[in-house]
């Protein structure tokens, strides 16, 4: 609903176009003036000097930051896998009719969603060694905290996915004699998981962003590496800007992929509705 296809306004006429151009020109002048002012201030403070920026051309620093990126990706991907397993278990658990299974699942989901990831991380970092006399490796401190939160979120996505399936699916499965568990495993879950794919990819973006908290518990991910590098070269602003750009690039690609898959799914799903009577078409898809 942006641009010419919007219902909120007509295509601009010659006067509106003229006003837009003049207004944009004036705004652009102000924006350029602001940018020049900011750059002059930064330059006066020596923030634009070669000494602050040139380290990013050195092989060693690039390698150091790439190491961080690899650690970020590692924690995010492992967390996504484990959170998916936990999420499916909790999501299905919440849908069972047995209260003894359902209640603990509800409790864990509320716990995971209500706790800040940072608090779970600090808990694993500070309290876990005291309680069990084991020092948890930094990687698992980060991963387990991320899994608790994202598992709870995925559980809700699974539950919503199963609940939005047409009622006929469950009824048909029961009608051919499948048990409750079989219905869930063979009919409902596979369909729900397919609908979930775009949400799972956007969850990966959330994981990559949240893994940046790893710097607080000493996990050498991208933000932690950035912090060390900034101390070494005394250029915090420059380092965080560079690292920010890296995060934006990676996450933009993932966000786009998620949107693309979502749109494609919407198209195929609407086609399905059109051809709902034609069982053969649905099967072949």
């Amino acid at each position: 609903m942006t641009g010419a296809d919007s219902h909120l306004f007509d295509a601009p006429g010659p006067r509106a176009v003229r006003r837009t151009i003049i207004g944009s020109g004036v705004a652009a002048v102000f924006a350029v003036a602001l940018i020049v002012y900011v750059l002059m201030e930064l330059s006066a403070k020596g923030q634009l000097s070669a000494a602050k920026w040139s380290p990013f051309l050195k092989y060693d620093l690039i390698k150091f930051l790439l190491h961080g990126l690899a650690y970020t990706a590692g924690a995010a991907v492992v967390s996504l896998g484990l959170a998916l397993v936990l999420g499916i278990a909790l999501g299905v658990g919440r849908l069972t009719r047995t209260a003894i299974i359902r209640m603990p699942c509800v409790a864990i989901v509320e716990l995971g969603r209500g706790l800040p990831v940072l608090l779970s991380m600090l808990f694993l970092f500070l309290a876990f060694p005291l309680a069990f006399h084991i020092d948890l490796p930094a990687f698992w401190t980060v991963v387990l905290a991320l899994v608790l939160y994202n598992g709870a979120v995925i559980a809700e996505i699974v539950r919503a996915g199963v609940l939005t399936l047409p009622k006929g699916q469950r009824e048909a499965a029961f009608a051919i004699g499948l048990t409750g568990t079989q219905t869930m495993r063979l009919v409902l879950l596979p369909q729900a998981l397919r609908i979930m794919l775009p949400s799972l990819i956007s969850q990966l973006v959330v994981l990559i962003k949240d893994s940046a908290l790893g710097f607080i518990v000493g996990y050498q991910e991208l933000t932690a590496q950035a912090q060390s590098a900034a101390l070494l070269f005394n250029n915090p602003l420059q380092t965080y800007v560079v690292v920010g750009v890296v995060y934006i690039l990676v996450n933009s690609v993932l966000s786009e992929a998620s949107t693309y898959l979502g749109e494609r799914q919407k198209r195929t799903l609407s086609q399905k509705v059109v051809t709902a009577g034609d069982a053969v078409t649905i099967e072949s898809r």
């Binding site: 002012y37 900011v38 201030e41 930064l42 403070k45 923030q47 973006v205 990559i208 962003k209 949240d210 893994s211 940046a212 908290l213 710097f215 933000t223 950035a226 915090p236 602003l237 965080y240 800007v241 690292v243 920010g244 995060y247 934006i248 990676v250 996450n251 933009s252 966000s255």
Partner: peptide, 18 residues
């Protein structure tokens, strides 16, 4: 697409410079 931590870092280190 930026981690909140990085938004914090850039705010805290960037704004005093201007």
């Amino acid at each position: 697409n930026t981690p909140l931590t990085i938004v914090f870092f850039i705010t805290v280190f960037g704004l005093p410079q201007v």
